[in-house]
Simulated assay, not measured.
Amino acid sequence: MNPMDRVLSHLRRSMEASQAAKNRALLDSGLTKAQYNALLLLERGHGSTATQLAAACGVSQQAMNKTVNRLVEAEFVQETPSPHGGRSRVLSITSRGLHALEIADDAVNQVEVELRRSLAPLGVDDFTAALDRLATAADHLLR
């Protein structure tokens, strides 16, 4: 079978290309993917410490600490001592961070709009339903 006739080849190629487009949009907005994800989680209330952000993003504590340090240096995030004491620091997004997130999110949403357009005539709902069926089938293969 020709490798390009395989579903997994098409999935990999489309995933890599779409992620590259998202990464480019983010870099053009001035944020890295890690910074964008951290700001998005902070803005949505899904973490208030670097440890929580690392867990939510699925990255190491060390990697998140580097990301947080850069966000603090850029004044996108501020740190305050934890009310529970210890070395933990509570993170909050600043107005400057919200502005950077808005610009980055607009850029990511533009990528999303273009990708949705490319699905015509299939439609987004049919496409996402097909992807969900693929994920379910793959999950069953793991059992």
Rank of each mutant, 00 (worst) to 15 (best):
H140L: 15
G30H: 05
L122Q: 08
R6I: 03
Q78C: 06
P83W: 04
Q110H: 13
V124E: 14
R70M: 13
V77G: 01
A56R: 05
A21D: 12
L11E: 05
E73G: 05
A54P: 12
I103N: 06
G86T: 07
T67I: 10
D132I: 14
P121I: 07
R6M: 04
D28W: 03
P81W: 12
A20Q: 04
V7A: 09
A74E: 07
R87G: 04
A54R: 02
L42S: 01
G123N: 05
Q110S: 12
L131T: 07
T51V: 14
V111K: 00
R143V: 14
L40D: 00
T136F: 11
E112K: 11
S18L: 06
R117P: 00
L53D: 00
E75V: 15
R6P: 00
E75D: 08
A56P: 02
N109R: 10
A120Y: 09
F76C: 09
Q110K: 15
L8R: 09
Q35W: 14
L27T: 08
A130E: 14
R44K: 08
D5V: 01
Q110L: 10
R70K: 13
A50K: 07
H99D: 01
P81H: 05
D126N: 11
P83A: 02
D28C: 01
G85N: 02
A21P: 01
R70V: 08
S9C: 04
A21K: 11
G86E: 13
Q110D: 14
A54Y: 03
E16A: 07
G47E: 02
D5Q: 12
S48N: 10
P83F: 01
A50H: 10
E79K: 09
M1Q: 03
I103A: 13
D132L: 15
S82Q: 02
L27V: 11
Q19I: 06
A129K: 15
V124H: 12
E75G: 14
G45P: 10
R143K: 09
T94P: 06
I103P: 04
T94G: 08
N109M: 07
T32N: 02
L122G: 11
Q52H: 07
V108T: 02
S95A: 04
N37M: 03
Q61C: 00
T128F: 12
S92M: 04
A50L: 07
L119Q: 08
G45Y: 05
E112D: 10
S48E: 03
V72S: 02
T128K: 13
R117D: 05
Q19A: 06
A34H: 09
A55W: 06
E43P: 02
G47C: 06
L71T: 08
G47W: 08
D106G: 15
Y36E: 13
A100Y: 12
H46F: 10
D126M: 09
A34K: 13
A138V: 07
E79D: 01
A130V: 07
E43K: 09
A138E: 14
F76I: 01
R12P: 00
C57E: 13
L40H: 11
V7Y: 08
V124Q: 10
E73H: 08
D125A: 08
A137L: 15
P3H: 03
